[in-house]
Structure formats: C-alpha cells, structure tokens
Simulated assay, not measured.
Amino acid sequence: MKLFSLFLLLFSSFFYRYLPPRTLHSKRMEKENSSLVTEFILIGLTDLPELQLPLLFLFLGIYLVTVVGNLSMVTLIGQSSHLHNPMYYFLCNLSFIDLCQSTVIIPKMLMNFSSEKSIISYPECMTQFYIFAFLTISECHMLAAMAYDRYVAICNPLLYNVLMSNQLCSWLVVGVYALGLVEATAHTGCLLRVFFCEENAINHYFCDLLPLLKLSCSSTYVNEVMALSLSAFNILFPILTIICSYIFIIASILKIQSTEGRSKAFSTCSSHIAAVGVFFGSLAFMYLQPSSVSSMDQGKVSSVFYTIIVPMLNPLIYSLRNKDVKIALRKVIERTL
C-alpha cells in the first residue's frame, strides 16, 4: 500500500509539472476564494462502521485472487512458447490491464476501510482517475479485439495465420493503448480545469469522473458532453463488434456435427459473453445514464463489477476452461518441481 501511494505521488508530479490544475485563472481564483480544495474525502462503499471490517477482508481476498490470477496468466503466457499466438497475446494484455486496474483502485479502497476518514490529495486523485480511465478504455477495445480474433479463428481457420499476423496483432494492441491514452488525457485535461470550492466529499470509493463533477463549483458542460460522447463510443462500438463476431461464431458452431463439440463450444462462448455482458452492462449503467436521473449510490455498486469483480473473473473464465492453458500450467509446475 505504501508502494501504491508512492506510485500515485510520482504520477501526480507529472500532472503538476506538465498539466497544472486550475491554470490561467488559478491565482486570481485563489485570491478570491481561499477555500479551493487541495484534498478530497472518499466516502467509500458504505459509512456503516460495522461493515468496514467484513468489507476489508472481502475485498482483500478479491484483490489477492485478482493479483494471483492475472499475474499467473501473464507469467504463464510469457514462459510457454506454444501459447505465443494472437489469442493468448490479447489475453496476456487483458490480464495486464486487469492487474493494473485493480492495483490502482483496491489498495486505496482497503486503506479507506481501515481508517476513520479516507483522504486523498488533489494530485493523487487526478492521477488515480487518469490511470483508471486509460485502463478502462483500453480494456473496452481489447475485448473487441479478442472477439474479432475468435471470429477469425473459428469462421476462417484456414486464413487465420494470414489475417491475424504478428504485425497486425501488434498494431491492434498499440492502437488500443493509444486510444486509451488519448481519451484519458482528454478527460483529465478537462477535469484539471474544473474548480472545486468548499465541498470535497466524493460519494465513491475512488476518484471517478461523474462523482467529481458533482462537486464542481464551475461549469462542467464540456466535461459532461465529452464523457457522454466518448463513453457511447467506448461502450457501443466494442459491443457491436463483439455481438457481430459472436453471431458469426455461433452460426459456425451450429454447423458442428458433434453434439459434444457443439455443447463445449457453446459453454465456452456463453461464459465469455457473460463476462463481457457484466463488464459493459455495468459501464453503461454508470456512464450512459443522464446526470439528472443517475444515482451515485447505485453507481458505486455498479462500478464494483467493472473495477473489481470482472478483473477477478477474467483469468478464471478465459483460462481455467482452456485446454492449452491447463497443459502449459502442468508443464510449468513439472519444470518447477
């Protein structure tokens, strides 16, 4: 947890140096209003004292499972030569994203459960949001790339090595991260120009965009329009890609003569679709609702799914039911012993 705080402080120095908050009119505003916020209070999931300790152990357990599962996937794919193909290349990147996202959010959340008042400084808050936005946007499009890869593998197996060349896969991953970086920078750049006056209690367990905008004492119109537009793109475009891919995949599965083969393929697809559905469904509930009808208390519960639950489940869904991963894991264990 100390490493996490140090990590946030290092990133916050970047923002203060290159993207200084409250520029242009900041000095004048500080003279006019001496109560500009320098730190925030995270209310967390609940303010009931009797729930703090049980939730601490619950989310600590979830975090440990998430770290072990995703770190194992990254290590296993990196060490197993027969897993060096596009499918596992994308899966390795997904595990890396999930591991980083959990580490950005959960350690601070655990500290909140063990302290009376959870305080996060302004630069730490902006840094946490920036990294979270980058990773979440990247995950949305990484899932779309994985669905396209599965479509090519199942529907065009003879052309798979041609259509999913190493160069194309590398460009897809670079494009996913670049998109996440550009959009996260745009969101954070606009957020750094929003003023926070007296109110500093964030009704959330981490620094998310919408709870922060609700505390603003300046206009947030540009931020809200950008949030709605980019959220619609980052949620709807991958969903359409995934739906189209799985329609073709299911059509191909129906052509399989073996009942056992069909059943196994449907079982795998259903688990993938369920994970994707929970991820994008909870994201849509949080970011595609009008601000006038959205509830932060409901949003907190929804955000638990895409920030905490899905990163824990992804390694289990995409790996433990996979024969190649089981073989690779057995070989690594035998080599270790």
Score class of each variant (00 low, 15 high):
5 S>F: 07
9 L>W: 13
10 L>G: 13
13 S>M: 13
19 L>H: 03
20 P>Q: 06
20 P>G: 05
23 T>P: 02
25 H>K: 08
26 S>I: 09
26 S>Y: 12
26 S>A: 14
27 K>F: 10
28 R>C: 07
29 M>R: 09
30 E>H: 06
31 K>M: 12
31 K>L: 13
31 K>F: 15
33 N>D: 11
34 S>V: 05
38 T>H: 12
39 E>R: 04
43 I>W: 01
43 I>A: 14
49 P>Y: 12
49 P>F: 11
51 L>T: 10
52 Q>M: 11
53 L>R: 04
57 F>Q: 09
57 F>E: 07
58 L>V: 04
59 F>I: 00
59 F>G: 01
61 G>M: 05
64 L>I: 15
64 L>K: 04
68 V>F: 11
70 N>S: 01
73 M>E: 00
74 V>K: 04
75 T>N: 04
75 T>E: 08
78 G>H: 11
79 Q>P: 00
85 N>P: 02
85 N>L: 03
85 N>C: 07
86 P>Y: 01
90 F>A: 00
94 L>C: 06
99 L>R: 02
107 P>G: 08
114 S>W: 07
116 E>F: 02
118 S>P: 00
119 I>M: 01
124 E>W: 01
126 M>E: 04
128 Q>L: 01
130 Y>S: 04
130 Y>R: 00
131 I>Q: 02
133 A>F: 06
135 L>G: 00
137 I>N: 08
142 M>A: 15
144 A>R: 02
152 V>P: 03
153 A>H: 01
157 P>A: 03
162 V>H: 14
164 M>E: 14
166 N>C: 09
175 G>N: 15
176 V>Y: 12
177 Y>C: 04
179 L>E: 10
179 L>S: 09
179 L>K: 10
181 L>P: 01
181 L>H: 06
184 A>T: 11
187 H>I: 01
188 T>P: 03
194 V>P: 08
198 E>I: 00
198 E>D: 13
203 N>R: 12
206 F>M: 04
211 P>L: 06
211 P>D: 08
212 L>V: 03
218 S>E: 07
220 T>C: 11
221 Y>V: 11
222 V>A: 13
223 N>G: 06
224 E>M: 02
225 V>A: 10
227 A>K: 03
230 L>P: 03
230 L>F: 12
234 N>C: 13
237 F>A: 12
237 F>G: 02
245 S>N: 05
245 S>M: 05
245 S>P: 03
246 Y>I: 06
254 L>Y: 10
259 T>N: 14
260 E>W: 14
264 K>I: 08
264 K>A: 15
267 S>V: 03
273 I>H: 04
280 F>P: 13
281 G>N: 12
286 M>D: 06
287 Y>K: 01
290 P>L: 09
290 P>R: 10
292 S>A: 14
300 K>Q: 14
302 S>P: 05
302 S>D: 12
303 S>F: 06
309 I>H: 05
309 I>Q: 02
309 I>C: 08
311 P>R: 08
311 P>L: 06
313 L>W: 10
316 L>S: 05
317 I>D: 05
318 Y>C: 13
320 L>W: 11
322 N>V: 07
324 D>V: 02
324 D>T: 06
334 E>P: 00
336 T>M: 12
337 L>C: 12
